[in-house]
Measured scan of single mutants.
Amino acid sequence: MDALKSAGRALIRSPSLAKQSWGGGGRHRKLPENWTDTRETLLEGMLFSLKYLGMTLVEQPKGEELSAAAIKRIVATAKASGKKLQKVTLKVSPRGIILTDNLTNQLIENVSIYRISYCTADKMHDKVFAYIAQSQHNQSLECHAFLCTKRKMAQAVTLTVAQAFKVAFEFWQVSKEEKEKRDKASQEGGDVLGARQDCTPPLKSLVATGNLLDLEETAKAPLSTVSANTTNMDEVPRPQALSGSSVVWELDDGLDEAFSRLAQSRTNPQVLDTGLTAQDMHYAQCLSPVDWDKPDSSGTEQDDLFSF
């Protein structure tokens, strides 16, 4: 819950932080000083300027060897085509990944977070970031790969997607708890209302004896509580940590079903599988986004697919 609360507080303090972009060759504004600060901008989305290598189908939802083989196929196909790589912007948030063309600003792909089953910074092609997700059109699994400016960037994108998945799962947990509370309150309110109706004398007997209905007592009954809980029953509950912020979080049926399955089948359902080692994760978390744009010590960066 700490990640969720800190993310909400950060967004309320400075929503404009989320509009910064990394990996864009110096076009961005001043960047936060450390990885923790940038992680807090996830709610509205972190932007990464990358190059799209392509996509291939895979048979399993996750796995280092599986993704490595898929990336190898994608890279080989991209090299064989001889075409310049498409420059894209990857927007990562707890909602998922939005992929747009840098030149036309046209939407290429919009992947809900619950469809993503794996992401990684490839070991062999260490400047490549990739994720595996279920197609929104059918049940097939797709591996999408992107060329980053350097290994640090690939690791940073991988960690960002993993963190977005974690925050999304926490949102789901909060929403589920809130819905259970509202359902319980609604049920209790309905029981109270039913009890009051059972003990209320029939209207005919009131008229016969000349008694008047006590409207004041009726007004004191917990009807307002019942209506408050039943009027918006169809509205999706939102985490309290975000009250007053500009973010509107809505959970669709697909996300609810997917996270429910994860909660039942996995020990740590909030953790998205990645190909990063503990050492890689520690190294990337210690980086400032400013470091992502620094040239690798191995030599001059080449803006070309064939540089790796």
Rank of each mutant, 00 (worst) to 15 (best):
L4Q: 02
G8V: 08
R9F: 10
R13G: 09
L17M: 14
K19M: 01
G25W: 00
G26D: 12
G26A: 05
R27G: 13
L31S: 04
P32K: 14
N34R: 09
D37N: 12
T38Q: 09
T41Q: 04
T41S: 15
L42K: 13
E44P: 13
M46Y: 08
M46T: 13
F48K: 13
S49I: 15
L50I: 07
Y52S: 14
G54P: 02
T56L: 12
P61Q: 13
K62C: 07
E64Q: 15
L66W: 09
L66Y: 08
S67E: 15
S67K: 03
A69E: 14
V75C: 09
T77Y: 08
S81N: 10
G82K: 04
V88W: 11
V88C: 11
L90Y: 12
L90K: 12
K91A: 11
V92W: 11
S93K: 14
S93T: 12
G96C: 10
G96H: 13
T104V: 07
I108G: 03
E109M: 09
V111Q: 13
D122N: 14
K123P: 07
K123V: 07
H125A: 02
H125T: 09
K127T: 15
K127H: 14
V128D: 13
Q136R: 12
S140C: 15
L141P: 15
A145Q: 14
A145M: 05
L147C: 12
C148D: 11
K150R: 07
K150Q: 00
K150N: 15
R151T: 03
A156Q: 01
L159T: 08
E170M: 11
E170C: 11
K179Y: 13
E180Y: 11
K181C: 12
D183T: 08
A185H: 03
S186F: 04
A195H: 11
A195F: 02
T200I: 12
P201W: 02
P201S: 04
P202A: 10
L203V: 00
K204E: 10
G210V: 02
N211M: 15
L212F: 03
L212P: 12
L215S: 05
T218F: 09
K220L: 10
L223A: 00
T225R: 10
T230M: 06
V236Q: 00
V236C: 07
S246Y: 00
S246T: 07
V248C: 06
W249Q: 07
E250D: 04
E250S: 15
L251C: 07
L251T: 13
L251I: 00
L251W: 04
G254L: 00
L255Y: 09
L255T: 06
D256P: 03
A258C: 00
F259R: 02
L262T: 05
N268A: 01
P269D: 02
L272R: 01
T277D: 02
T277C: 05
H282E: 00
Q285Y: 04
C286A: 07
C286S: 00
L287H: 00
L287F: 01
S288E: 05
V290F: 04
W292H: 02
D293S: 00
D296M: 15
T300K: 05
E301N: 06
Q302C: 08
F306L: 05
